[in-house]
Design a protein around this nucleic acid. Structure first.
Lengths: 211, 211
DNA sequence: TTTACTTTCAAACAAGCGTTTGATATTCTG
DNA sequence: CAGAATATCAAACGCTTGTTTGAAAGTAAA
C-alpha cells in the first residue's frame, strides 16, 4: 500500500477542493457536486467521508496560518510600531494574495457577513484571538489612557480597512478594471493602511496625553 | 375605484416585502415564497408583476436616500471638516439604524460581497457616485498634494471603517452580546470614525506640506 | 347584463440541492 | 486464497427553488 491510502487521498482532495470552492462561492453558493467534480470523486464521497456538507466545512476550516502570523509577530524582536506594520503586511498578503495558499483565510472572510453553521467555530477560534491580538498591539502603541470601548473601535477601524479590500473586490474590479492584487499592489495597500492607522493612533495618544 | 388600484397595492406590498427580505437574507438567501407570504400575495404574483425575481430586485433597489444624503451635504454651509463629520454621521445612521427606513441601503450593502444580477446597476448608480463624492471631500480636506492613488486609498480606508460595522454584525454580536446599534451607539461610532479618519488625513496633509 | 380585460390563485413543473441506497470494486485480515 | 471490512459508484430520493399554467375572481366599459 502507498504511504497514503486511497481513502486518505480522496479525503485530502475533497478538503482541498472544498477550500477552493467555498472561498470562491461561499458556503451557500458552493455545491457538493462541484466540489466532488473538482476532487475527481463521486457525489456520495462527501457524505461518506465527512457526514455532510457542514462536516466538510468544519474540516476544511483551518486557522493555522492566521495563528502562525500572530505567533511570529509576538516573538518578533521589534518595537510595537514596526510589529504593527509587519502584521498589517502579513495579514493583507494572507487575505489578498491569490498565489499564496491563503484560501482558508479567504474562506473564513467569506462567511463573516453570512452566518453559516460554522460561524461559531470561526469566531471563537480565529476572530476572537485576532481581535485580542490587535487590541493588545493597539494598547502597546497608544498606552492605557483610552477607554476599552475606544480601543475596541480602533481595532475595528483597522480591521475594517483591511477587510474592505477583500469584501469589496467585486465592486472595485468594476470601478477600476485595471485592479489586480499583485504583490506590489498588496504591499502598497498594507503600507497605506499602516500609515493611516498609525497616524490616527498617534493622534489619539497625544490627545490623551494632553487631556 | 380607489385612488390606488388593487394591482398597484399588491405591487407596492411586494416591493416593500422584498426590501425587508433581501436586506435580511441577501438576494440568494431570500425566497420568492417568503416575500409573497409577507406581502400577503400569491407565489405567482412576483412573476406576474415583475417578470422574475431579478426584476423584483431591480425595482426594489432605490438609491434616493443615499443620493439625498450627498446632495444635502454638498449644499451644507460648512467647512469640509464639519461636512465630513456630518457625512459619516448620516451615512452610519443610514447603514446601521434599524428604525430608519434604510433597508434600501442595507440591501445594497448586502450584495457588495456577493455579485448578483443587479450589481452593475448598484455600482454605476450608487457606489461610483459615492466614491466620487468622498474622493472630492477628501481632496478638499487634504489638498492636491497627494496622488490620486493615495487619495483613493484614503477613501477606501474611510468606507472600510464604515462598512465594517455592517458586514461584521453577526460576528460582533457573538463577540459582544450586549451590542445594539441604537442611536447613541451609532453616533459614538460615527464620531470615532470621523476622528480616526480626520487625524489620519491631517497627518497626510502635513506630511505633504513638509515633503 | 354581456363582453373583454386584468388580476389572483391553487397546483404543478423542471431544475437543482444535499443526502441515501444498494450494488460493485477495492483493500485489509486471518 | 477466502472472507470481512472499506471505499467508490450510478442512480434515485425527498425537498426546495424560481417559474408556468389554466381556471377562477374581480374590474371596466358597452
Amino acid at each position: 500500500m502507498n504511504e497514503a491510502t486511497s481513502s486518505e487521498q480522496t479525503r485530502a482532495r475533497l478538503i482541498e477542493a472544498a477550500r477552493e470552492v467555498f472561498s470562491q462561492q461561499g458556503f451557500q453558493g458552493a455545491t457538493v457536486r462541484e466540489i466532488c467534480r473538482r476532487a475527481g470523486a463521486n457525489v456520495a464521497a462527501v457524505n461518506y467521508h465527512f457526514g455532510s456538507k457542514d462536516g466538510l466545512l468544519a474540516e476544511a476550516l483551518n486557522f493555522n496560518q492566521l495563528r502562525l502570523l500572530q505567533a511570529a509577530n509576538l516573538v518578533a524582536d521589534a518595537c510595537p510600531l514596526v510589529r504593527f506594520r509587519l502584521f498589517i503586511h502579513d495579514f493583507m498578503m494572507l487575505l489578498l494574495d491569490e498565489h499564496s495558499a491563503s484560501r482558508q483565510c479567504r474562506m473564513m472572510a467569506r462567511e463573516l457577513a453570512d452566518p453559516t453553521p460554522a460561524l461559531d467555530k470561526i469566531v471563537t477560534e480565529a476572530i476572537a484571538p485576532l481581535h485580542d491580538f490587535l487590541n493588545q498591539l493597539v494598547r502597546e502603541i497608544v498606552g492605557d489612557g483610552i477607554s476599552e470601548a475606544e480601543r475596541l473601535r480602533c481595532v475595528f477601524s483597522i480591521l475594517g480597512q483591511c477587510s474592505f479590500y477583500y469584501h469589496s473586490e467585486p465592486v472595485l474590479r468594476r470601478l477600476h478594471p485595471g485592479l489586480r492584487y499583485q504583490r506590489d499592489e498588496i504591499e502598497a495597500i498594507a503600507r497605506h493602511i499602516a500609515d493611516f492607522s498609525l497616524a490616527a493612533l498617534s493622534a489619539k495618544k497625544q490627545a490623551d496625553a494632553a487631556g
